Amino acid sequence: MKKIDVTEAIFEIKKAKGLSWETIAEAVGMSDVWVTSACLGMNSCPEDVADKLVSFLGLPAEAKSVLMEYPTKTWDQAIPQDPLVYRLYEIVGVYGDTLKEVIQEKFGDGIMSAIDFSMEVDKEENPKGDRVILTMNGKFLPYNAW
Protein backbone atom coordinates (compact mmCIF):
# COMPACT_ATOMS: atom_id res chain seq x y z
CA MET A 1 0.00 0.00 0.00
CA LYS A 2 1.01 3.60 -0.61
CA LYS A 3 0.01 6.65 1.44
CA ILE A 4 -2.66 7.59 -1.10
CA ASP A 5 -4.14 4.07 -0.83
CA VAL A 6 -4.38 4.35 2.96
CA THR A 7 -5.86 7.85 2.74
CA GLU A 8 -8.48 6.70 0.25
CA ALA A 9 -9.32 3.68 2.43
CA ILE A 10 -9.72 5.93 5.47
CA PHE A 11 -12.08 8.25 3.60
CA GLU A 12 -14.16 5.28 2.41
CA ILE A 13 -14.40 3.82 5.92
CA LYS A 14 -15.08 7.22 7.47
CA LYS A 15 -17.97 7.79 5.06
CA ALA A 16 -19.36 4.26 5.32
CA LYS A 17 -19.37 4.33 9.13
CA GLY A 18 -20.52 7.96 9.39
CA LEU A 19 -17.46 8.90 11.46
CA SER A 20 -16.15 12.37 12.18
CA TRP A 21 -12.47 13.30 12.48
CA GLU A 22 -13.22 14.16 16.11
CA THR A 23 -14.55 10.64 16.77
CA ILE A 24 -11.51 9.06 15.13
CA ALA A 25 -9.17 11.35 17.09
CA GLU A 26 -10.88 10.50 20.40
CA ALA A 27 -10.54 6.79 19.62
CA VAL A 28 -6.76 7.11 19.21
CA GLY A 29 -6.19 9.72 21.91
CA MET A 30 -4.90 12.53 19.70
CA SER A 31 -6.20 15.91 18.45
CA ASP A 32 -8.57 16.00 15.51
CA VAL A 33 -6.29 18.34 13.52
CA TRP A 34 -3.23 16.11 13.97
CA VAL A 35 -5.09 12.86 13.24
CA THR A 36 -6.63 14.34 10.10
CA SER A 37 -3.19 15.49 8.92
CA ALA A 38 -1.71 12.05 9.59
CA CYS A 39 -4.59 10.36 7.74
CA LEU A 40 -3.95 12.70 4.79
CA GLY A 41 -0.30 11.57 4.80
CA MET A 42 1.29 14.77 6.09
CA ASN A 43 2.46 13.38 9.47
CA SER A 44 3.83 10.01 10.52
CA CYS A 45 2.07 8.12 13.28
CA PRO A 46 3.86 6.72 16.29
CA GLU A 47 3.43 2.94 16.39
CA ASP A 48 0.79 2.96 19.13
CA VAL A 49 -1.34 5.52 17.24
CA ALA A 50 -0.97 3.57 13.97
CA ASP A 51 -2.11 0.41 15.83
CA LYS A 52 -5.15 2.23 17.21
CA LEU A 53 -6.09 3.71 13.81
CA VAL A 54 -5.80 0.34 12.05
CA SER A 55 -7.87 -1.34 14.77
CA PHE A 56 -10.54 1.35 15.15
CA LEU A 57 -11.07 1.84 11.42
CA GLY A 58 -10.61 -1.81 10.44
CA LEU A 59 -7.80 -0.99 8.03
CA PRO A 60 -5.67 -3.78 6.51
CA ALA A 61 -2.67 -4.70 8.69
CA GLU A 62 -0.25 -3.36 6.06
CA ALA A 63 -1.69 0.15 6.57
CA LYS A 64 0.14 0.34 9.91
CA SER A 65 3.61 0.62 8.37
CA VAL A 66 2.32 3.14 5.82
CA LEU A 67 0.84 5.31 8.58
CA MET A 68 4.23 5.20 10.33
CA GLU A 69 6.24 6.22 7.22
CA TYR A 70 7.90 9.62 7.31
CA PRO A 71 6.08 11.92 4.91
CA THR A 72 7.52 14.04 2.18
CA LYS A 73 5.75 17.31 2.87
CA THR A 74 5.09 18.74 -0.55
CA TRP A 75 2.01 20.34 -1.96
CA ASP A 76 0.85 21.75 -5.24
CA GLN A 77 2.45 25.15 -5.79
CA ALA A 78 -0.48 26.39 -7.88
CA ILE A 79 -3.01 28.72 -6.28
CA PRO A 80 -5.59 26.47 -4.58
CA GLN A 81 -9.03 26.37 -6.16
CA ASP A 82 -11.02 25.07 -3.18
CA PRO A 83 -12.61 28.18 -1.61
CA LEU A 84 -11.71 27.31 1.99
CA VAL A 85 -8.09 26.43 1.17
CA TYR A 86 -7.85 29.48 -1.10
CA ARG A 87 -8.98 31.77 1.74
CA LEU A 88 -6.21 30.43 3.98
CA TYR A 89 -3.76 30.98 1.12
CA GLU A 90 -5.18 34.50 0.76
CA ILE A 91 -4.75 35.18 4.49
CA VAL A 92 -1.06 34.28 4.29
CA GLY A 93 -0.70 36.35 1.11
CA VAL A 94 -2.33 39.42 2.66
CA TYR A 95 -1.15 39.07 6.26
CA GLY A 96 2.03 36.96 5.95
CA ASP A 97 4.44 39.90 5.93
CA THR A 98 2.43 41.55 8.71
CA LEU A 99 2.66 38.44 10.88
CA LYS A 100 6.39 38.20 10.16
CA GLU A 101 6.91 41.81 11.24
CA VAL A 102 4.84 41.49 14.42
CA ILE A 103 6.36 38.13 15.43
CA GLN A 104 9.90 39.39 14.85
CA GLU A 105 9.19 42.61 16.73
CA LYS A 106 7.96 40.62 19.73
CA PHE A 107 10.45 37.72 19.60
CA GLY A 108 13.44 38.79 17.50
CA ASP A 109 14.80 37.45 14.24
CA GLY A 110 13.42 33.94 13.78
CA ILE A 111 10.46 31.82 12.80
CA MET A 112 7.51 29.96 14.28
CA SER A 113 8.12 26.23 14.23
CA ALA A 114 5.80 23.99 12.25
CA ILE A 115 7.48 21.01 13.95
CA ASP A 116 7.05 21.96 17.61
CA PHE A 117 3.52 23.04 16.79
CA SER A 118 -0.13 22.45 17.53
CA MET A 119 -3.34 23.74 15.98
CA GLU A 120 -6.96 23.77 17.04
CA VAL A 121 -10.13 24.52 15.13
CA ASP A 122 -13.05 25.81 17.15
CA LYS A 123 -16.51 27.13 16.39
CA GLU A 124 -18.00 30.27 17.94
CA GLU A 125 -21.75 30.67 17.65
CA ASN A 126 -22.60 34.21 16.55
CA PRO A 127 -25.99 35.70 15.59
CA LYS A 128 -24.34 37.43 12.61
CA GLY A 129 -22.93 34.10 11.40
CA ASP A 130 -20.88 31.43 13.12
CA ARG A 131 -17.15 32.14 13.45
CA VAL A 132 -14.19 29.87 12.71
CA ILE A 133 -11.41 30.11 15.30
CA LEU A 134 -8.00 28.81 14.23
CA THR A 135 -5.36 28.67 16.95
CA MET A 136 -1.81 27.97 15.82
CA ASN A 137 0.75 27.46 18.57
CA GLY A 138 4.38 27.09 17.48
CA LYS A 139 7.68 27.33 19.30
CA PHE A 140 9.75 30.39 18.38
CA LEU A 141 13.04 29.42 16.75
CA PRO A 142 15.60 32.22 16.64
CA TYR A 143 18.06 32.38 13.77
CA ASN A 144 21.64 31.68 14.86
CA ALA A 145 24.64 33.83 13.99
CA TRP A 146 28.05 32.22 13.57
Rank of each mutant, 00 (worst) to 15 (best):
F56Y: 12
K100R: 09
E8R: 15
T7A: 05
L141K: 05
E8P: 07
A16R: 13
K64F: 11
K14N: 07
M112S: 05
T36M: 15
S44A: 15
W34G: 01
Y86H: 15
P71W: 08
K139L: 13
T7M: 06
E90F: 08
T74P: 01
Y70R: 13
L88Y: 15
A63C: 14
E105M: 09
D48L: 02
N137V: 04
L99M: 14
E69L: 11
L40C: 07
K73H: 14
P142D: 11
I115V: 13
E69G: 03
W75V: 14
V33K: 07
V92C: 05
E26I: 04
V33P: 01
A9Q: 12
V49H: 04
V66H: 00
L59I: 03
C45T: 03
D122E: 15
E62D: 10
E101S: 15
A78M: 11
D122Y: 12
K123L: 11
A16F: 05
V54C: 01
V66E: 01
I103Q: 00
D5C: 07
F117P: 14
F107W: 14
Q77C: 11
I91F: 12
L134P: 06
R87I: 13
P127D: 14
M68V: 07
P80Y: 03
E26H: 08
N137Y: 05
N43T: 09
L19C: 11
D130M: 02
C45R: 01
D48S: 08
Y86V: 07
E22T: 13
G18I: 08
I111G: 07
V35T: 12
N137F: 02
I103R: 01
V6H: 00
E120R: 07
D109E: 14
E90D: 08
I111N: 10
E22L: 14
M119Y: 03
K123G: 02
S118N: 06
E90M: 04
G110K: 05
M119H: 05
P127V: 08
D130C: 01
A9V: 10
A50C: 08
L88T: 13
P60T: 02
S55P: 03
D48Y: 04
T23C: 09
E101R: 15
S37Q: 12
W146S: 13
S55Y: 04
L53A: 03
T135W: 08
L53W: 03
L67D: 02
R131M: 08
F140H: 05
C45W: 02
A63S: 15
K17S: 06
P142R: 10
D82S: 06
T74I: 06
S37A: 11
K100Y: 02
D51R: 12
E125L: 11
A38D: 02
A16P: 01
V66T: 03
S44V: 11
E8V: 11
A145R: 09
T98D: 10
D82M: 00
V94W: 07
E90T: 04
V6Y: 00
L67H: 02
E47Y: 04
M136P: 11
K123F: 10
Q104A: 00
F117Y: 15
E47P: 04
I111C: 12
E101H: 14
K106C: 02
E69Q: 10
G138Y: 00
A9N: 09
G29E: 04
L40H: 08
V35P: 00
W21R: 09
G96V: 12
K106A: 05
E47W: 01
I4L: 02
D32C: 02
E120H: 06
A27N: 03
Q77M: 12
P60I: 04
V92E: 09
S55N: 10
S20P: 00
I103W: 01
P60R: 01
